[in-house]
């Protein structure tokens, strides 16, 4: 696959697992220090990640309340639980690179990254994971407070649900990262990606369960959400933890998540080879 890429451009397979491990350990330390230095910016991001589910939570609990405590098959407490868990899952799967790649290319920020003998995706994985880990310091207390204030109902959550939640969440994290990182590569071809990003965000708002639980969407939209990766990036882990899906669906869900990850990785490898060889920074 490296046929079209010049020699000095990194592919995915240049490093041994051992040196990769060393890279990750050092990079994590550096990244944590960086996040700590810019904790103000971190707080502002967290603010956005809390406000959005909070607004949906308020809207839907209001709907349920005005309907006598239940609407669309969810009680007020179940809506509260749904959006509280969604807030945590959305934070842990959150990826911002689609909004950053255009800037990286225009400013030439990508040039040194591409020169290094290691694939840039590793840098972004570490950045992303350390942001999420640090962010939990704000997100978890916020989730607990909201769960208490809005009387979240976790009555359907069994021990098995909690156990199945962990792999569902990890797979969702991997899938959303690979998927959106691959889509971000569009910036190598287009100078302006904002319209594409707006459209993707629009789809994911509805189809990943951010605006409302998927069960409330019209049938055709639910089918699309099942076929496309959106449900499997955010909504699925939430449904698993809250006991909204049976064990059969959970197993199938893991399969769909793995399938999408495999597909996204394949596309990413093909696309990256072409993208990197097309790269020309402004002024380079």
């Amino acid at each position: 696959m490296a046929t079209s890429a010049p020699e000095n451009r990194s592919t995915f397979d240049d490093l041994s697992p051992r040196s990769l491990l060393g890279y990750y350990a050092a990079k994590f330390r550096a990244e944590f220090a960086l996040q700590l230095a810019y904790r103000g910016a971190m707080l502002i991001w967290l603010f956005g990640l809390i406000i959005q589910p909070l607004v949906s939570l308020v809207v839907w609990t209001t709907v349920a309340d005005s309907n006598g405590g239940e609407a669309g098959g969810f009680t007020t407490g179940e809506y509260a639980a749904y959006f509280v868990v969604l807030m945590v899952v959305n934070h842990l799967t959150f990826v911002w690179h689609m909004w950053e790649f255009g800037w990286r290319i225009q400013t030439g920020f990508f040039s040194p990254m591409l020169m290094r003998p290691i694939h840039p995706v590793h840098n972004d994985v570490v950045e992303n994971l350390s942001f999420k880990a640090m962010g939990l310091i704000g997100i978890v207390p916020a989730a607990i407070i909201l769960a208490v204030v809005f009387n979240a109902d976790f009555g359907e959550t069994s021990f098995g649900n909690a156990a199945a939640f962990v792999p569902a969440l990890l797979l969702a994290m991997a899938l959303r990262f690979i998927l959106e990182w691959t889509l971000a590569l569009a910036a190598f071809w287009m100078t302006k990606v904002s319209a594409m990003n707006d459209f993707y965000t629009f789809l994911s708002f509805f189809l990943s369960g951010m605006i409302a639980p998927l069960a409330l969407l019209p049938e055709p939209a639910r089918i699309v959400a099942n076929i496309l990766p959106f449900r499997w990036t955010v909504s699925f882990p939430v449904e698993v933890l809250l006991g909204q899906v049976g064990s059969g669906t959970i197993i199938v869900g893991f399969g769909v998540q793995l399938l999408w990850i495999a597909m996204a990785v394949l596309i990413l490898r093909r696309l990256w080879a072409v993208a990197a060889s097309r790269y020309s920074a402004v002024g380079a």
């Binding site: 839907w60 209001t62 709907v63 005005s66 609407a71 669309g72 629009f202 509805f206 605006i211």
Partner: peptide, 24 residues
């Protein structure tokens, strides 16, 4: 394009909410 997408998001959200209730 961005403004129109935002508008459609708002309208669809209102649509989904009012599928479940007559008044918010």
């Amino acid at each position: 394009v961005g403004i129109l997408i935002g508008l459609v998001t708002s309208l669809l959200t209102i649509g989904i909410v009012f599928n479940q209730t007559d008044s918010l």
